[in-house]
Design a protein around this nucleic acid. Structure first.
Lengths: 196, 196
DNA sequence: GTAGTCATGTAAGAGGTTACATGATTAG
DNA sequence: CTAATCATGTAACCTCTTACATGACTAC
């Protein structure tokens, strides 16, 4: 269900084609939710059928067209309802933590490599997310600017703050992964060190 | 695929019935992977068919029986291969972060309630995960004790350390959620405060 | 006896992944 | 003309969720 609301969310900034939405989700930095193209188009059809969005057929070039989707009143209501609805925390399911539990079963250099990759991945991620949070705080995000254009000025602070907050959370989580991977590498060095 | 290896992992501690495995996964604290009963039994059948585990039919009471599964050599090989195999980080998909992005669209008290629940949930979680990590370090975990019984003594340190490390990581992540929720609550107070 | 636990399953459906398939438009 | 991008889809498959279904065993 979340995909549907993620789509509604970005469409409240401005109308977009399925392709643009897909771009937004594919870019690992674009969002806090990800989805492949193959999931977007069928979902858009279902959402249109359910009256949450409506499409305007727009010409591009001479022969081709595209469908520009916008959120309906019913769509915005559905989004607000979903946002207000208390949802239970998702079940824990982290494959890398699971691997870590049994990491003693692999050669120690393989284990080290795993954590090195983890470390580097989340270092980059933390940086990217922090940049995202900054781009909201400083109102550099293009989509944010478009959103603010049709938002009452007294709401701007809240709109900006919650978006930045969400990415702060992502960055903080990435920082934890970095620190944890360093702990893991220190542990591995210790395990390898001659007993003394 | 991870479910399969989670099952192989616990079965390397000692043979178990599907029911015991399901208990282990259902208990939110039991593991870093969760799965309902309805997923366990079919997976056990597939794993048996694939030769990763084998069942011994054990009597219980006078009429009933249960199937006690243990890992085969091929199963242990598969687990080791999965553990060594480098896996890409999973796509980002966090419904609560997604809600946070649009949290300005709900009444501020609803938003506050969301973060209060989040805070309390992860406070409890952090505590439980830390207790888990400690139960490994202090070798109080029953399953760990059984595992160490058939593990060469010189491997014990590594076996224990990686398990504790995995739960340290979970605890650290929970701590981040707690700190982040506090930030969110502070932000909400600020947004509500009269401008001055 | 009866409630709680032990034990094993099935079925429908939602959500997500990977791969395939096609064609127009635009920038160089 | 050619490569990259814009644009829209389908199909097979796997994973996970929710709900249903059944019955034996054990402690009270």
């Amino acid at each position: 269900m979340a995909l549907r609301y993620a789509i509604l969310g970005i469409l409240t900034a401005r109308p977009m084609s399925g392709y643009e939405i897909a771009k937004y989700f594919e870019d690992p930095m674009g969002f806090v939710w990800s989805a492949p193209q193959s999931q977007i188009y069928p979902e858009l059809h279902r959402m249109e059928k359910d009256g949450l969005i409506e499409a305007e057929v727009v010409k591009r070039g001479s022969r081709a067209t595209k469908r520009r989707y916008s959120v309906t009143g019913s769509g915005e209501d559905a989004l607000r309802r979903w946002l207000a609805d208390p949802a239970p925390a998702p079940p824990e399911r982290d494959a890398f933590r699971l691997r870590t539990v049994y990491m003693d079963m692999v050669p120690i250099d393989v284990a080290r490599k795993h954590f090195e990759v983890h470390l580097e991945y989340y270092e980059r991620r933390a940086e990217q997310w922090r940049e995202r949070a900054a781009s909201f705080r400083e109102r550099r995000s293009e989509l944010l600017i478009e959103r603010l254009r049709h938002t009452p000025a007294d709401r701007h602070t809240a709109v900006v703050a919650f978006k930045a907050l969400a990415f702060d959370g992502q960055a903080a989580r990435a920082d934890v992964e970095v620190a944890w991977a360093r702990e893991a590498l220190a542990l591995i060095d210790e395990l390898e060190a001659p007993a003394g």
